[in-house]
């Protein structure tokens, strides 16, 4: 068990070290997320007033879009430098590699969200600061669910043709419950009086989703990555 987490830790540290040196994925993903929010602002803010209830949806759509971009790039780098085979040949549990990759993606998305939340709050007049703990809980659980499925699919797609197109095609239908729960939960927090029991229900659903899909991913990663 300790070995498992050590391998996961090393894989994550490797990804983050490469990222810290180039900052390629971070900059492109953050910039893309910000452009996304701006496009929504142009579309949905009329005469200086945002549409009701738009903020929660826009936050989660931006996370989903930026997440897809980040996920694709993370594995594209392994393919480009032909290091995926080396990674797979490492004398360790395959699922540990999956967990390491997942942690790397989560770290990246956490930074993206740290930029997105204040931006959406600013442009759409959303009082995110009123119940920060529930917001963080929803974001953490939702991002984990989205990234756990996304990391597995991105890893499988590395060898597929037209992988850039196929990742969103596969990922969005599966992660719809995450988006529904995230948007509804966040919208409950943004009401005039934050509806915390509602947010708790959606957060619980997200945690349950995380447990099922992380388990399923750990279980299928080995047979899927074997040629």
């Amino acid at each position: 068990m300790r070995q498992f987490f050590r391998v996961a830790w090393i894989v994550m540290r490797k990804d983050l070290t490469v990222e810290v040196r180039s900052r390629e994925i971070l900059y492109t993903t953050v910039f893309f997320a910000v452009s996304c929010v701006l496009v929504f602002a142009f579309a949905l803010v009329r005469e200086g007033r945002p549409m009701d209830d738009a903020a929660a949806g826009i936050l989660w759509i931006a996370i989903a879009f930026a997440g897809t971009l980040g996920l694709g790039r993370t594995f594209e780098r392994e393919r480009h430098t032909e290091t995926l085979r080396a990674l797979m040949l490492a004398p360790s549990d395959r699922p540990a590699i999956y967990v390491g990759k997942l942690l790397g993606v989560l770290a990246l998305l956490a930074i993206v969200e740290a930029v997105l939340v204040p931006l959406v709050a600013l442009l759409f007049d959303a009082p995110f600061a009123r119940s920060p703990l529930w917001l963080v809980a929803l974001l953490a659980a939702g991002t984990t669910g989205f990234a756990s499925v996304g990391t597995l699919f991105a890893a499988m797609l590395v060898r597929a043709r037209s992988r850039d197109v196929l990742l969103p095609v596969l990922l969005y239908p599966i992660t719809i419950p995450v988006i529904i729960a995230g948007v509804r939960g966040t919208a409950a927090l943004l009401q005039t009086t934050p509806d915390e029991p509602m947010a708790r229900f959606w957060a619980a659903l997200l945690v349950f989703f995380d447990v099922v899909f992380v388990t399923l991913s750990l279980w299928t990663f080995e047979p899927l990555m074997t040629e």
Partner: peptide
């Protein structure tokens, strides 16, 4: 999906 897409 190309080759190996059955698993995907």
């Amino acid at each position: 999906g190309g080759a190996g897409s059955e698993k995907l």
